[in-house]
């Protein structure tokens, strides 16, 4: 049961070693930098040091209590990330699959629009546009 913020890449398999021991179901999700336009060279992620770590822990604990998780882990990177690199991961462990899936989905919805990260797409010409929040992410959050 932990949340971490870091600039370094991570190894999903290493992160999951020993995770959720004894659980009947483990769900993992990882987000990867994609390039929709073919013009992007990297993604730059800014965050709010201090608040980010605290709020990720809060969301993890809320998910644990709501979905009766036996374990959870949140890892989110910041700084400069190349296309194809992993941005973040959530892992949830529960007795049964439905709770583990739902908890991962819940955590992703909160992370998307209520965790203090801001993405900027860096392009080959040196420019960088801040990524706009999506209405659909806000709608997803209302499901919970």
């Amino acid at each position: 049961m932990s949340a971490r913020v870091q600039t370094a890449p991570f190894d999903l398999a290493a992160e999951l070693r020993g995770f959720g021991k004894g659980a009947g179901a483990v769900v993992t999700f990882s987000g990867v930098v994609r390039d929709d336009t073919g013009q992007m060279t990297a993604l730059e992620i800014e965050h709010y040091p201090g608040m980010t770590e605290r709020i990720l822990n809060d969301y993890g604990q809320q998910a644990a209590s709501r979905f009766k998780l036996t374990d959870w882990r949140i890892l989110h990177r910041h700084g400069r990330l190349a296309v194809g690199e992993q941005i973040m991961m959530v892992a949830t462990a529960a007795r049964h699959r439905r709770a583990a899936f739902d908890a991962a989905d819940y955590l992703m919805d909160w992370l998307k629009s209520r965790a203090p990260f801001w993405k900027r797409e860096l392009s080959a010409d040196g420019g960088g546009a801040w990524v706009d929040a999506r209405d659909s992410d806000e709608t997803s959050l209302k499901r919970w």
């Binding site: 987000g31 973040m88 992370l111 629009s113 990260f117 993405k119 801040w130 990524v131 706009d132």
Partner: peptide, 10 residues
């Protein structure tokens, strides 16, 4: 107090 645009994590 902090001010920022809508968050874009995940």
């Amino acid at each position: 107090v902090a001010f920022f645009p809508p968050m874009t994590g995940g």
